[in-house]
Amino acid sequence: MIVLFYNRKTKNRISTAWMYIAISFVVLLPFILGLGLYFKSSLLFSENSLGDLLFSKVWKPSIGKFGFLTFIMGSVWVTFIAMLISAPICIFAALSITQYSKKFYLKIIHPVIDILAGLPSVVYGVWGIIVVVPFISTVIAPLFGAQTMGYSILAGAIVLSVMIIPFILNILIEIFRTIPIELTEASLSLGATKWETIKYVLLKKALPGIIASLGFGLARAFGETMAVLMVVGNMVQIPKNVFDAGYPLPALIANNYGEMLSIPKYESALMFAALILFVVVMVFNALMRMLIVRYDKY
């Protein structure tokens, strides 16, 4: 009896300890990652100022010039346009599914979203090369009087938006579903139309969640590598319009990592690119949290 008691207490202690180890691992992980990247890129800092690294567009590794502006702008363009495409689609799709459609659609949309979310990004890349790139060069660009091979910021953004839609949509559907129906009833019974109810009540109630879901999508889009680098053109230039080729940060790392490791400064530069991605995603996250708190008063 005493042995059993002893055992139970020990087991309890061990399992508690395990949980602490697990949680501290999770909490420490970002710090370990961030520190690792920082030390690995310190070689670059020793010879270049941070301002030069971030705001110079001269990228000449052979003479030791590492300006990341082109890559940062490539990432910003692709991400921004991808969000511009996917955010309205996701919000309207989520509203349509939760507010207007029959239950049946909700049932079929979940497997569809799961399939889309589960596809490997290289599949999206191939789809981009076969469908999106030619479509841009033969249909969209001529509409605007532009000439392009199709490998462009726009191609990257379209592929990217299709990739993040399932993630954002999934969260948004849950958010709209958890708004109590009584709130809709209250608004309708005050003489509001369905659209007024959505505009003034549901969207407002859901705002913190919408911000969170878009922030999540944005962070994903910013770091997505494979599919984007397959269609975005990868030319070291600051894109002037969406039909120009660009070179986002993740593509820079993926394209050069293997072969450039022999050059210490180049390796350090790629680590710095990773550090930029890391910091940007973290800052986004913090901003989103602040916005959510700001709008979460209802």
Binding site: E182, L183, E185, A186, S189, Y200, V201, K204, Y298
Partner: peptide
Amino acid sequence: LLSQRPFPLPM
């Protein structure tokens, strides 16, 4: 309409 629990509008 007055429902079982109050649901003030988000404003």
